[in-house]
């Protein structure tokens, strides 16, 4: 099968790859570009482990084709916080023990960042509904919601 050449921007870096027409953005990120921070829990848009932003919009990368990344801006967990400084959301997840196994965490960090960009002052209910697409089987969500609400407050305080 002929592969398509795609030029895109991932976490601010211009990136090129060759892609089968049917390959998902998730498969490209993980298998071609070795950006394995984005996880696969289902491949059918039901778990949110593969959450990334596409031109600022939160999407399941398992439901996006690799070729759709052409000319787009992609944001993954690898672009949030880093060696020198964690993002507030990441710090709050650690502080609140909001992860157990951690497989849902990259997706939740990406989704929480998108939530707080859209709505810096969510109610608990709004946070719960925005994050309803991110499954976590370990925590029962209590500590995740606390970390999200605390992040929102801290980020407002910083602004």
């Amino acid at each position: 099968m002929t592969k398509t050449h795609v030029t895109t921007t991932i976490n601010g870096e211009v990136t090129e790859f060759l892609c089968e027409p049917g390959a998902t953005l998730l498969a490209v990120l993980r298998n071609e570009l070795q950006l394995t921070g984005t996880k696969e829990g289902c491949g059918t848009g039901d778990c949110g482990a593969c959450s990334v932003t596409l031109n600022g919009r939160l999407v399941c990368s398992c439901l996006v084709l690799g070729v759709e990344a052409e000319g787009a801006e992609i944001g993954t967990v690898e672009g949030i916080g880093g060696i020198d400084k964690l993002h507030i959301i990441q710090e709050k997840f650690l502080e609140h023990a909001a992860l157990q196994c951690g497989i849902c965490t990259p997706g939740l960090i990406v989704s929480t960042k998108a939530l707080l960009a859209e709505n810096p002052e969510p109610t608990e209910k709004e946070a719960r509904y925005y994050l309803a697409g991110n499954l976590c089987r370990c925590t029962g969500y209590d500590k995740i919601i606390r970390a999200v609400m605390d992040s929102a407050e801290a980020m407002r305080g910083d602004a």
Partner: peptide, 22 residues
Amino acid sequence: RTIRPDGFDKVTGRANYGADLS
């Protein structure tokens, strides 16, 4: 309530799970 020692890797996507090795 310490910060878990493997936490940094898990909130940044650096931690390697079952499907992450090639």
